[in-house]
Computed example of a mutant assay.
Amino acid sequence: MGWLAAGDGYEVALVEGRVAARATSGRAAGRRLKSLPKQVREHPEVERLRRLAEWLDRHEAACVARVDAWMVSSLPVPTELVARVWPDEAWRSVLRDLVVVGDDEVGFLRDVTDSGELRVVNLDGETVRLSPETVTLPHPVLLPDLEELREFAAELGVTQRVEQIHRATWGRPVDFVEPGKQEEKAAEVKEFAGGRFASRFGLAARATSLGYRVSGGYATCVVRDAGRSAEASVWIGEPYWDGETETGDLTWRDREGRRLPSREIGPVAWSEGMRMAAALYAGRDVEKGTNA
């Protein structure tokens, strides 16, 4: 973005997301100033740039949230859509270097051609062009070559705006229920229960800051896995109680509110539920001292 006149002797521009100013006359002419001079702080151009910066921040956050949702649910994304949004820097910075799958190829998305083809670097180090109708951005628990992708990413110097290949994952346990035996019970994970917090408000705030929804006495996340929706939930305390509280068990429910046994919980829903429970538990109060 170019520099805009802002009163006598100054110009302003948006630089790295912040409004910057430079003098147009005197010894400092053409030099960027460390702070905005008083003469331009209330100038209309400065206010317009501030509003633009705020909009760009919201737009970038929305791009990250949308792509994260595509990845967590492994939704098919039209290749045409990826090509259409690619020129937008906010979209491009989020999509670039994510692992995509299309035309039986798996690799890191590096670029999009003028004709709308995706340029992908596969595990053989070859750059291939893909033009399927849709591609997926798989959740890492669904990637059989995850460790190889992580090693290759380190070689390429890949960094991802949306946590994908380095996302913490948990494998779903295999349940064995013999015919004629008691019906399998609903899944209930206690591994991350008992995390103590000074207040329920603090635990709820942690859940919200991590991107999870707080509903009633639970922190929840909804995942669409293999065409089905499952809601993972962790008890965090009564809604209007602001005293000390603890994390409870992790459970899953279907859209009708029925608690699910582990065999009915998809691998992504299981992993994301465990990830939420672990993230909440990690913020617990930890005793200090020799007897802790």
Rank of each mutant, 00 (worst) to 15 (best):
W3L: 08
L4K: 15
L4F: 15
A5I: 05
G7Y: 09
G9A: 09
E11K: 03
E11I: 05
T24F: 07
T24W: 08
G26D: 10
A28G: 00
R31Q: 14
L33M: 13
S35H: 13
S35N: 07
L36E: 07
Q39Y: 00
P44L: 08
P44F: 08
V46N: 06
R48S: 13
R51Q: 14
L52W: 01
D57H: 05
D57V: 11
A61T: 06
A62C: 00
V64S: 02
A65N: 11
V72C: 02
V72I: 15
S73L: 00
L75E: 15
L75W: 08
P76Q: 06
V77C: 05
P78F: 06
P78H: 11
T79E: 02
V85D: 01
W86S: 11
D88Y: 07
V94H: 02
D97Q: 10
L98A: 03
G102K: 00
G107L: 06
S115K: 14
R119D: 00
V120H: 07
N122I: 02
D124T: 05
T127H: 07
V128W: 00
R129P: 00
R129Q: 13
L130M: 06
S131H: 12
S131G: 02
P132C: 11
E133P: 00
T136C: 07
P138V: 05
P138C: 08
L143D: 09
D145Y: 08
E147Y: 03
E147C: 02
L149S: 03
L149V: 12
R150H: 03
E151W: 03
A153F: 04
A153K: 04
T159Q: 14
E163F: 01
E163N: 07
Q164K: 05
I165L: 12
R167F: 06
A168D: 14
R172E: 12
R172N: 11
R172V: 07
R172Y: 07
D175N: 04
F176M: 07
V177N: 13
V177M: 05
K181W: 10
Q182Y: 07
E184T: 13
A186L: 04
K190C: 02
A193V: 01
G194A: 04
F197H: 15
A204I: 01
A205E: 15
R206A: 06
T208F: 02
G211C: 05
Y212T: 04
R213Q: 14
G217F: 01
V223C: 04
V223G: 06
R224K: 14
D225P: 09
E231F: 00
P239V: 07
Y240D: 15
E244I: 11
T245E: 09
D249K: 12
L250C: 09
R255K: 10
L260D: 06
R263Q: 08
G266N: 10
P267R: 13
W270I: 01
R275H: 11
A279V: 00
L280Y: 08
G283H: 11
G283W: 03
R284C: 03
G289F: 06
